[in-house]
């Protein structure tokens, strides 16, 4: 395993937030509606991890350091973990485990439908993230994992639809998301500044 320390620190850094929030909720430091705060933070955390994950490839292109690609899968899985927790927190704190209401929400609320579609996409990516699936799917694996871009779009739409009156925060994430998508355009990819002389022709397999 390459870059074990880097991987481990990413793992610790990602794991520590939900634990900290849970602790804060436990000691009543999240205010009178801790469930809602947890739902919001986990959702936003998931989006941030998705953006970071998508940032790894351009970073690798720019710096030539293979470490970025080594942690890409782990970051993607953290995105999935946060969104899975986000969903659980929503079911528990917002719906109060009312399954009947869940079916109503799934039929009637566009932002819930979009959110669930995004989650299903993440689920598909998470279960095919192992080496076995990579081998089995071969060339199709790469195509399947392009779904990450669709999921980003769904996530941003889901986020947009819960905004009530101020678009500032959303705009920040949307701009970063769009910028990351633009780095996938070949013409822009060619022009990305390179900080290291090393040629990075082949993307290292993890």
């Amino acid at each position: 395993m390459r870059y074990p320390l880097f991987r481990l620190s990413i793992f610790v850094l990602a794991a520590v937030w939900p634990l900290l929030w849970l602790y804060q909720a436990w000691i009543f430091a999240l205010g009178p509606d801790p469930g809602k705060v947890l739902v919001d933070r986990l959702g936003l955390g998931g989006l941030i991890f998705l953006l970071i994950t998508l940032g790894m490839t351009p970073l690798q292109r720019m710096t030539g350091w293979a470490g970025w690609i080594v942690v890409r899968r782990q970051l993607g899985l953290w995105c999935f973990a946060y969104i899975a927790l986000h969903l659980c927190a929503y079911l528990f704190f917002i719906l109060g485990l009312d399954w009947g209401q869940l079916t109503v929400e799934l039929r009637k609320r566009p932002y819930i439908i979009v959110g669930v579609l995004g989650f299903l996409g993440l689920l598909a990516l998470a279960v095919t993230s192992n080496r076995y699936s990579q081998r089995r799917l071969g060339a199709r694996w790469k195509r399947l994992h392009k779904l990450a871009y669709v999921i980003l779009g769904l996530g941003l739409l889901h986020f947009l639809w819960i905004v009530r009156a101020d678009l500032k925060e959303w705009s920040v994430y949307a701009v970063i998301g769009v910028a990351l998508l633009l780095t996938r355009v070949p013409a822009i990819l060619q022009r990305l500044p390179r900080f290291a002389g090393r040629k990075s022709g082949s993307v290292t397999k993890v």
Partner: peptide, 15 residues
């Protein structure tokens, strides 16, 4: 249109 009004969270709510 975006959420149900059938129920509410009475605050403060705990973990």
């Amino acid at each position: 249109p975006r959420w149900t009004q059938a129920r509410e969270r009475r605050l403060p709510s705990g973990l």
